[in-house]
Amino acid sequence: MFQFRKNITLFLLALLVFTGCNTKDKLAEPSDEFRVEVPTNLGPFPESERGNFLTKEGVELGEKLFFDPLLSKDNNISCATCHKPELAFSDGLKGSIGASGKTLERHTPTIMNLAWHDGFFWDGGANTLESQAFGPITHEDEMGQDLGQLMEELKADSLYPQLFENAFEEGGINSKNLSWALSQFQRSLITGNSPYDKYIRGEGNLSSLEKQGLQIYQENCSSCHVGDQFSDFGYHNNGLDEKFDYTSEEEPKLGRYRITFDSLDLGAYKTPTLRNIAVTAPYMHDGRFATLEEVLNHYNHGIKDSPSLAPKLKDGIQLTADEKTALIAFLKSLTDEEFLSRYEGK
């Protein structure tokens, strides 16, 4: 039923290499490899391109850090303040409010199955999870933290020094290990047990309305929301705006253009997954749509033309009222209750 991914060969080889140098006897061992349970329809678990392989200690440290407000300037905001587990690690707000009290311009992205993703933030500005972590921690409108100050606070804590030692062979408490632990935890957040998944794996069934919606999804949505990750991990302008005449070239409203300076990326944002979409309202990068109905109405008759509009959306997506009802029923079958309740009470 599950595919248990074990890179035991790699792990043993790594151990051999590490123990080959007898410089330090107390080299913390890479310890227990973290056992990632990947539902078969998701395919193999992609390893970190930074060589940041999951260990039990690393994932547990990452989890503790993720839920710890110590990471923010005034020790009052944790990653989980905006990334709430029960909302697939989003927060239900159009724009979250962080350390500066200013409302952010973009909706909090979800965190699930990120091991399969490529490019982070709505515009893909962060290349890896390991690099991404520094953004929200240091941004004045998010957690507003000074990294040097954070290292001092972690070193002064009664538990963190030992936990970092246990999780990483070298470095102890440093910014790299902080970002690596957070990334390991995030990579461990895998969802693939929704009614849809169980249906695809032959473990359960969908209602006839949901099945009808599945077919409508396949015919109309699956070219961007591809496969069982429901994303092509690409960036598209889906016709929300017709003009992008913002004053600064780095305005978040310019979409991926502010990363690439390519005019075809004006208003383009990463295709979000559809997994757990029933609990991740409001929708779009700026949370402008409160309901799934509003989203479908946008694709039906709200598409605004501009030179960077995704060609496939030129004519919109025309659905009848019954088709919309079926599609929404299908989208709700992507809710993985097991995943959403995993960190209940944290």
């Binding site: 500005g125 690099s131 953004g135 290292m151 910014s175 790299k176």
Partner: peptide, 25 residues
């Protein structure tokens, strides 16, 4: 430059202090 998770010398974001962008790697 395509990664921020450096722990070597002056590239360490703690040491370089404010030299990585927080919206793009």
């Amino acid at each position: 430059n395509h990664n921020s998770d450096h722990d070597k010398a002056d590239l360490d974001p703690v040491i370089s202090d404010g030299m990585i962008w927080n919206w793009a790697t």
